[in-house]
């Protein structure tokens, strides 16, 4: 039984890493623009599908992954430029509708490009399972974990150590004050969208060898990432990461110990519980500060 629990934990953390990266993207964009970007899951799908397509076209996997990420960053920038920027200062509901519309649009494009079939990437370094304290770990899980940790550390360094990162924080804290020190807030918005799209794409590419991908894959991942961001206290990047991992582990435990049919229900029930008892999220100091 303990081995089994450990196995669930490993699976949960792997999937949770993806949620964490998507949640991080939500938090970045929310911070920079007060927009909840419901196209965040589509970035994940686009990253995975583009990498699969490029690999299929004969490119080596690393190159396919890099190009797919860059292409998704490009989509994020276009989304910002042509859908978000014209609506700057619009109501929350308006921007939500815009991002949902963008998500549907991107999904449609993906369906036209790649059809409705499921696709998958080969594992980065083989699929011989590794025995680890009674649990079997796929090498791909280690990739997911390793890259996620690296990305989270990089994002933290970006915010804590670089002037641009601090400028982005300043924008999210008070846009007018940020403008008054000479920060070009539109550039910061673009940066946030580009960064979120890149994180989403990488999450999608990392998880594609494990979960398969299709034009619709972004819907559920987007919702889970959104949940992670809410659990973490929306607007708190590291909270979103913790929220994502927590969500992944709970889901995996629920699926293993109860029934895999309840996997998603358990995740969303957890979000509701968190919101009920701790409306600003489990790590939501940021939200209180913003008021």
């Amino acid at each position: 039984m303990p081995e089994q629990l450990f196995q669930f934990l490993v699976t949960g953390i792997t999937v949770g890493s993806t949620y964490a990266l998507v949640g991080l993207g939500f938090a970045l964009i929310y911070n920079a623009s007060d927009v909840v970007n419901f196209a965040q899951g589509e970035f994940v799908m686009l990253g995975a599908m583009a990498a699969i397509a490029l690999l299929g076209a004969g490119l080596p996997l690393p190159l396919a992954a890099i190009l797919a990420t860059l292409a998704t960053v490009g989509v994020g920038l276009l989304l910002e430029r042509f859908a978000i920027e014209p609506a700057l200062g619009a109501s929350v509901v308006t921007t939500i509708i815009i991002t949902i519309g963008a998500a549907i649009f991107l999904r449609g494009i993906a369906m036209l490009l790649w059809g409705k079939d499921f696709h998958s990437l080969p594992p980065f370094t083989g699929d011989a399972p590794i025995q680890l304290g009674g649990a079997t770990v796929l090498p791909q899980s280690l990739w997911v974990l390793g890259v996620t940790v690296a990305l989270v550390v990089l994002v933290r360094l970006f915010f804590n150590r670089t002037l641009i990162g601090k400028a982005l924080l300043a924008c999210s804290f008070n846009r007018a004050a940020a403008q008054l020190v000479g920060i070009n807030v539109r550039m910061m918005l673009r940066l946030a969208y580009g960064l979120s799209a890149g994180l989403g794409a990488l999450a999608g590419i990392l998880i594609a060898p494990i979960t398969f991908s299709s034009y619709e894959a972004g819907v559920m991942l987007g919702l889970k990432g959104f949940s992670a961001a809410i659990v973490g206290g929306i607007g708190n990047p590291m909270g979103a990461v913790a929220g994502g991992l927590l969500l992944g582990v709970l889901e995996s435990l629920g699926a293993g110990l109860v029934s895999s049919g309840y996997k998603d229900a358990i995740a969303f029930l957890f979000v509701l519980m968190v919101l009920f008892f701790e409306p600003t999220g489990l790590f939501g100091h940021k939200a209180a500060e913003r008021v």
């Binding site: 601090k166 400028a167 924080l169 300043a170 020190v181 000479g182």
Partner: peptide
Amino acid sequence: ICQVPEGRLVFAPLSVEDNLRLGAFR
């Protein structure tokens, strides 16, 4: 033209040092 806005609007979640450094953003 630099402005000290009404209500100060310092960047509360950042340190004093970082606030000053951001003042020199340009």
